[in-house]
Amino acid sequence: MMKAIITVVGQDQVGIVAKVANQLAELKINIVDMSQTLMDHNFTMMLSGEWDDQQLSFADAQGALGRLENETGLTIRIQRQAVFDAIQKL
């Protein structure tokens, strides 16, 4: 099971959550947790997702979100979760 953190930052606009969630649903990425906020007038959303890495490679997930990034003008990052645990937890 692949676990990743997806962060979406950009100008607030109608349908951001829907666009990202739709894309994740298409990729069969399960959203385990999510939060969103406005920071410096920027919409900032964080999603914790997991999926079966036998079905979808990390690179393919990254590629699909990269295309969504280009379409929407949002900044979308996807990073494997382990890095956050390593840096922030003892």
Partner: peptide, 10 residues
Amino acid sequence: MESQSILETI
């Protein structure tokens, strides 16, 4: 999910 930690790392 600890949003603050994630944002700080990014």
